[in-house]
Write a protein that binds this DNA or RNA. Structure first.
Lengths: 253, 253
DNA sequence: AAGCTTGGTGTATTTTGAACACAATAGTAT
DNA sequence: ATACTATTGTGTTCAAAATACACCAAGCTT
């Protein structure tokens, strides 16, 4: 939470740089140790968590704004980023209005405004991310989707909505290029799908199906070192992958 | 296009009632005589068309705003309405900025602002719609999707994007309840699917498949009067239909 | 009544998906 | 070394679903 001087400063910059009434919130999915994770920011001295988010500059395309925000929190460029919904309840930011209402009169107070937030979700490779808190947060860290802290405002709902969209997307688009490291084994990829869908899949059938999409290349060398049989390493065939993104995996009709 | 006095009046109301920077545009799909149609507004004395649209009142949920706008243009309540994307290019409304930039200084001029528009698409029963133009348009009418007039701004792109979303939706959700009259024949419903997908479907297989969803009820009485064999009449089983909407038709994985 | 057109139902074939068996490999325990 | 175990790769079977037709029924036309 801001103190008065911080609030005044922030509001001044905000009013001059950003578009009123619009914010962006990003649900950043990562995958690590068999768990689907989401990036969250913990506010200083509070048990409050928020999604990485921000505002749109007056002359900035919204996709660029989302990318800029994510770059600041993750260090990553060129992220797979997808708009999925606008959250527009008039009361969704009421806790923020109340929090700051005594510090500044409404016409100067950025947080007394109503905000619609554009929800984006991002898929990123866990190990490439360098989570970086912003000014009002003490930490930026990964949280298990199954064990989320207390996200404020409607951010818990935004996460759920993003997950629903991701699950739906699995049905007609390939996924994984953005979530997996360059090389991975088939069981690892399967684990990703199982985690997103929250159900077990048959090992053999999964392999046949995913290979059928023709978006994977198998390396010559299997991964050695682990116990048990050495699995093959795969990587995504970027060209076919991109193509599958456009064409869809299998039309219904 | 407004004259100066109209512009002044409009801007005054707009500034006091509506949220800055946000608009809503609706792609209203109807189905008639084997053709998919879209509702368009023709501006007075111009060869310019726009989608039905409007703004969000300062204290109004965005879904309510979209419903309000559609009610004004169609007379319909309780429309199937779905948000599908935000269009946020900074230049998307440049023609509007330019059109009015000499009439009023920017700080008073509603149309000098940048607008993000939230795209909604609606599915409606053609015969129930009472197309009603708004103040600046001379007509509100249906246009064949295959033969659209010159939609301005990015509205042609919005229509295309809505259609893509609709096609995708066909794969995992039932459709038709909102587009067909209460009772209809199987060939009529098939025609709807064929029109949306823009391809021919096999008569027999279509029937089996759609019946397999269990969302249709068959009437006792076939439709008499037309030439040739009298077809059965069907109606949607609303309860199963709603359920199918929630559950989805067939998961991919 | 024959013929045309449209709609309803059935059936063979192919494709796809789900369930399962078995072989191969690398480490571990004895 | 040898047996054992956990894990991965590949194949086979069976059922369900999609596809492509064939045929029959009904209503109007001639």
């Amino acid at each position: 939470m801001f103190n008065k001087q911080e609030l005044i400063d922030f509001c001044e910059t905000a009013r001059s740089s950003y578009l009123d009434h619009i914010s962006i919130d990003c649900v950043v999915f990562g995958f690590h140790e068999g768990q689907l994770k989401v990036l969250g920011l913990k506010i200083k001295n509070e048990a409050s968590w928020y999604l990485p988010g921000g505002f749109v500059m007056k002359d900035e395309p919204i996709e660029m704004a989302a990318n800029r925000i994510l770059k600041e929190r993750t260090g990553l460029d060129e992220i797979f980023l997808q708009q999925f919904r606008v959250f527009g309840d008039p009361d969704r930011a009421r806790p923020h209005h109340d929090m700051y209402k005594d510090m500044l009169p409404p016409e100067e107070n950025w947080f007394s405004m109503r905000f619609l937030t554009i929800g984006y979700y991002a898929l990123v490779d866990f190990v490439n991310v360098n989570p970086t808190p912003d000014g009002h947060s003490e930490s930026c860290t990964w949280y298990d989707l199954t064990d989320l802290p207390d996200f404020k405002l409607d951010h818990a709902q935004i996460i759920k909505s993003a997950l629903d969209t991701l699950r739906l997307q699995l049905n007609y688009q390939p996924i994984g290029y953005n979530l997996m490291p360059k090389e991975f084994t088939m069981p690892e990829l399967q684990k990703l799908y199982e985690t997103i869908l929250d159900k077990k899949l048959d090992r053999r059938n999964f392999q046949r199906r995913i290979l059928g999409f023709g978006i994977l290349n198998r390396s010559e060398q299997p991964r050695k070192g682990g116990a048990h049989k050495a699995p093959y390493l795969y990587s995504f065939d970027l060209k076919n992958y991109q193509n599958a993104l456009k064409e869809g995996l299998k039309g219904g009709w």
